[in-house]
Simulated assay, not measured.
Amino acid sequence: MKTSVAIIGAGPAGLLLAHLLASQGIDVVVVERRSRAHCESRVRAGVLEQGTVDTLTAAGVGERMRAEGHVHHGIELRFGGEGHRIAFDELVPGRAITVYGQQEVVKDLVAANLAAGVDLRFEVEDVAIGGLDTDPWLAFGGERLDCDFIAGCDGFHGISREAVAPHLAVFEKTYPFAWLGILADVAPSAPELVYAASERGFSLHSMRSDTVSRFYLQVPPETAPEDWSEDAIWAELKARHETVPGFTLATGPITAVDVAAMRSFVAEPMRFGRLLLAGDAAHIVPPTGAKGLNLAVADVRVLARALGEHYRTGADGLLDAYSATCLKRVWRAQHFSWWMTTLLHRFDGADAYDRRLQRSHLEFTARSKAQATALAENYVGLPYED
């Protein structure tokens, strides 16, 4: 078999790249080890930056997102018994976030790719890669797929980065806590996301729809989902969120509980020979800044333009600059995610000085227009360079 670009991974990065390349007439094959049903039901990120929304819309896959997604023009920082709104509509006019689940983005992209005749192969096992210097190939199911390029969009635990690990520089940080993620069939108790900092630890109130809410609790890193009963989860969420007058957290049936590790990770460069890494395969951020999915989309925008130039004109300037171009945005997002994480979480072992310093930083962010603007412009997503 032969194709132009072989894409490993049918998450948002791989599917969007396939769609953008196919729309330019570039032949692609996507391989994914999980089932289509799994990919379309896996609940992950749900906050889309303005640039992500614009990209999906321009790619022709934004109709359902615009109809069903929730546009938010601010977030709330809650601490010290008060709520402080960071007003995107005032600080960064014309830019907002849209709450629309990753699984819904995947559904839209799968449908668009199938409608365009893109070769999507789910439940593909034992994928191997080789020839990355000059003649790349994938092997799976007793078949071999020769290609011009391989796009590694297979996430943090995929085979793509591992295949070139000796050639990469790795930068990483592990945080001394995790997030307990809770999905519940209950209407949101607030119109926008609430980031709550307290002596009990951090908590986030988010939503997926008018009837489904998503919550996160800061927990010890060794926590397992079964460590928390439903009653204990609601009691702790109430203790961390019902800290301002008049606010009551609505409760309902909990449908899913998971634990997410908190880490920062970057592998450089994002290209080795004919292998190009994108999304979580190259970098991870703690979810506090809501940047993971959005960084994947930013990578794919750059990569699709670079490969388009290669096949259209034979020029490789954009391909040669791919890693450096993406990493500028990646490191900005790394800093913002680290900043949000250290601003809002309780660190065991922090002394009285550190705790007072953290509170001072929170208060300054809430009252300083300049600081709030910096938070807002990073949160909604910095404009793309193109």
Rank of each mutant, 00 (worst) to 15 (best):
D231W: 06
S160A: 04
H205D: 09
T373P: 11
D126Q: 10
F347Y: 11
A151V: 07
D258F: 13
G292A: 14
V99F: 09
L343F: 02
C153Q: 04
C39T: 09
I8P: 03
V219S: 07
V110E: 06
L20A: 14
S206I: 04
V28C: 13
A306H: 11
G60Y: 06
A281T: 03
E226M: 04
D280H: 06
L114V: 10
V43H: 12
H167I: 04
T251N: 04
F336R: 15
W331S: 11
E385D: 03
I8M: 04
D299Q: 02
E230Q: 10
G201P: 13
D386K: 07
G80I: 11
D227R: 07
H335T: 13
F122Y: 02
R161P: 07
V244W: 04
A37M: 08
V28P: 05
A190F: 09
Q358L: 02
L249E: 02
R33E: 12
V106G: 05
I159H: 05
K238C: 09
E104W: 13
L344N: 14
V164G: 09
M1W: 10
D227Y: 01
V257K: 08
T255N: 12
A115N: 09
A239S: 08
L138Y: 06
E49K: 00
K328T: 11
D108V: 01
A111K: 13
